[in-house]
């Protein structure tokens, strides 16, 4: 298996022309490949998010994770950036879409890009993955336990985000949804409501809910990690991108 890769930090011109730090990994080989934009979780642009980027490169994709909290300042720790962004109510939806669009364009500008780009997000990034797929012309989207797609957040929650269900008719690509049956945000009925609406609209989607798993079951550095769900989930993600991001 040819799994050699280049990986490291780069800079892209994000929403509004802002300089956005991003972690990019891509195979060394010259085979044509699709790209994956990784949307990190609310705790920020951390080591685990970069590992996810490298996992895609090890499986033949070019992948990039923009630091959505870059605007909190250069030279600031990613956890401090995350706390500052959280205190401001999170990243505005418009800015997220702009940053993902810039990341996707960057992937398409690289050598050996086949022009296909998928998006994946975890936790708050799951909702943002769905948002990006309803706002941009993409080829595949993965939503890992994104809450507040169907339901509005509790009134006292720090995130200033609105539900996205009304955007579902604009979904531009197939959607893979991976959820924990024990999760409360999104709760199983919220997942079921999204599933039903996408079916009603005739939107291609594939949802899996794992028993015994709650929120953040992919997070290998947290107690929420559930190996069985995560291992099967990774298989499904790679198969899904294999189908939809090949030329």
């Amino acid at each position: 298996m040819d799994d050699a890769m280049h990986a490291g930090t780069t800079t892209i011109s994000g929403h509004g022309g802002a300089e956005v730090e991003a972690y990019l990994a891509r195979p060394v080989g010259g085979a044509p490949r699709g790209g994956v934009v990784v949307i990190h979780h609310l705790p920020g642009y951390d080591a685990a998010s970069k590992e996810i980027v490298r996992t895609f490169a090890a499986h033949g994709h070019a992948a990039i994770c923009p630091n959505l909290f870059s605007r909190e300042g250069a030279g600031v720790g990613p956890d401090d950036q995350a706390a500052a962004a959280r205190a401001k109510g999170g990243v505005p939806d418009e800015q997220l879409v702009g940053d993902v669009a810039a990341a996707a364009a960057h992937l398409n500008s690289l050598d050996h890009a086949n022009g296909k780009v998928g998006v994946i997000g975890f936790c708050s990034g799951g909702r943002q993955s769905f948002l990006a797929a309803c706002s941009l012309d993409l080829d595949a989207a993965v939503d890992c336990y994104g809450a507040f797609v169907v339901e509005a957040p509790p009134a006292d929650a720090p995130l200033k985000v609105a539900p996205l269900l009304s955007r579902a008719p604009d979904l531009s690509c197939p959607l893979l949804g991976l959820f924990g049956a024990e999760d409360r945000f999104p709760a199983p009925d919220e997942v079921a409501a999204l599933d039903a609406e996408l079916t009603r609209l005739g939107k291609e989607h594939e949802f899996h809910s794992y028993p015994g798993a709650g929120h953040a079951f992919f997070a290998v550095d947290r107690p929420s990690y559930r190996p069985e769900a995560a291992v099967d989930g990774w298989k499904k993600i790679l198969a899904f991108y294999g189908r939809h991001l090949s030329a």
């Binding site: 300042g73 720790g77 956890d79 401090d80 995350a82 706390a83 500052a84 205190a87 947290r222 929420s224």
Partner: peptide, 27 residues
Amino acid sequence: HPQHAAREHTLNIDFTNPADGPSARAA
């Protein structure tokens, strides 16, 4: 969710001075 504590959830406190930037934080 905590950044560092090995728990699924914790009570988190950020002591900050936003005017001095995000690094002016004790967590």
